[in-house]
Design a protein around this nucleic acid. Structure first.
Lengths: 273, 273
DNA sequence: TTCGATTTGTTCGTATGTATT
DNA sequence: TAATACATACGAACAAATCGA
């Protein structure tokens, strides 16, 4: 028996990588096309956060690809934090729970805390909510006009009962209609959860730039520092689907008792023997 | 025809996930066992940095697993930065080239530089090389005794022709015998490349903790700052195979012209539609 | 409690495309 | 051109987790 003959000889739409595009997955490898297609569906809220995607079997049938191709497409979105797999249950759209915040977006921890130790969720106190104009720097980060209206929120964050971090958040007012101080204060969960639930805006990634600066007097007062004391300043831009900027945030951190932890690993099974 | 009958009905060593361990891959899923096995081989320098691993076909045959399982094991090591795939050529052991330094370990960039812009490699000037004792903090980080002998190196790093960063590097003297100032100064490539080529010690990951501090007088002089000016201090611990600490490093960064960039993404095809 | 249906997780094997030498 | 190596794709079978009947 010279090896099993091609028991499934033909009838497939394509052999392996296909030079032409299939029905509607775009060009390039199939799994990338499917990945883009799924990302687009997620951006359009076809499956809202927290809900389950169709099973891999169904997705494979609907898109006319094999289940292995579906898995590879989903793998990338799971690695990017947009989807969550649960064996025996299904694949779910990631939601902005406190857990996700801690894992993906909040990097300030108690000094000398082990990298793998459980992190503490900060408690937030809203200090101010104002309407303003973007200005040059924020405008560039948010890809809006410098004169565009923005909302500016100031928060004081506590860790271990201590004021550690002052946040200045700026978002385009046009994207968050009717957002007001009351709504912010009575929210449950994180601000990103509010963006998600009230406005259908998902933050999917962020970049942060850190520098050391002399603490402004007002912030020093809030953090219990002397004016001019060194503080860690973090400028974060948070992006949504399609790399569209959603939020500009500047944080000032009192690093006497806390610090910024940049691990850069811990995803999937540890690849170090 | 009720679907192709199982044309390959038996003879496999195992069916799917196997409760028992195979030849020597340990417990758990096969691909994890293989991943650990490969990591161990890499740690033992079975294939030196820059060299090619056996082909996936060969690895599959040697370990008596399918090629898909081999690919999954290698995928994780590639994601961790220990291996590099090159289509048509093979899979290679990652070496500590300047490129790898920039991508995985060096995060200081010019202010407001786009996140995706090409980064600049710093030029290094060695300021001092001394023998010393570890002391409490370093000892804990390096998992050695506080009285253990260490080597301490001070470097001044320039970016865009400007002194931007002061480095204080500490390693256990026992692991780097006969390392001296002359060898450090005449090295080509990065310090991690020297660890690799001269001592067979690979840095595979690092954690960094950032805080803002008042600049010590001596460092201020070197960086062109006034004593007490805010500087960004980075405490890095670099780890080798098996999460063994290799190096303790404290960096002081002048963040008037440069900043620390924490992207946390950009690996693999972008999962955002 | 047991059992079956459903869904993801793991493994195998094969075929073919694409890049390199 | 031929051989080799990784990349993509398909499909099948079984394991493990989950949930509800």
């Amino acid at each position: 028996m010279p090896a099993t003959p091609p028991s499934k000889p033909a009838a497939r739409r394509r052999a392996a990588t296909r030079p032409e595009s299939g029905p509607g997955l775009g060009d390039g490898p199939l799994y990338l096309g499917l990945q883009r297609s799924l990302a687009r569906s997620l951006a359009e809220r076809r499956w809202p956060p927290g809900s389950a995607l169709p099973s891999e079997t169904r997705l494979a049938a609907e898109h006319r690809v094999s289940i292995g191709t579906v898995r590879k497409a989903i793998d990338a979105l799971v690695a990017g934090g947009m989807l969550v797999r649960r064996q025996g249950r299904g694949t779910f759209v990631a939601s902005h729970t406190p857990d996700r915040l801690l894992f993906h977006f909040f990097h300030v921890v108690a000094r000398d805390a082990p990298a793998a130790s459980p992190r503490e969720l900060p408690s937030t106190r809203l200090l101010s909510f104002r309407h303003a104009r973007a200005g040059a720097g924020v405008a560039e980060a948010l890809a809006i006009a410098p004169a565009a209206r923005v909302l500016r929120v100031e928060n004081l964050l506590h860790l271990q009962g201590r004021a550690v971090l002052f946040d200045e958040i700026t978002v385009a007012a046009a994207r968050f209609p009717r957002l007001d101080r009351a709504r912010l204060e009575r929210r449950e969960g994180t601000i990103y959860g509010l963006y998600e639930s009230d406005y259908g805006i998902d933050v999917v990634r962020s970049t942060e730039r850190l520098s050391a600066v002399a603490c402004p007097a007002r912030i020093a007062r809030l953090l219990g520092l002397a004016p001019g004391d060194p503080v860690l300043r973090i400028r974060r831009v948070a992006y949504g689907w399609g790399d569209r900027p959603v939020e500009h945030r500047v944080s000032w951190v009192d690093t006497r008792t806390h610090e910024y932890l940049s691990d850069l690993w811990k995803r999937g099974p540890d690849p170090r023997g």
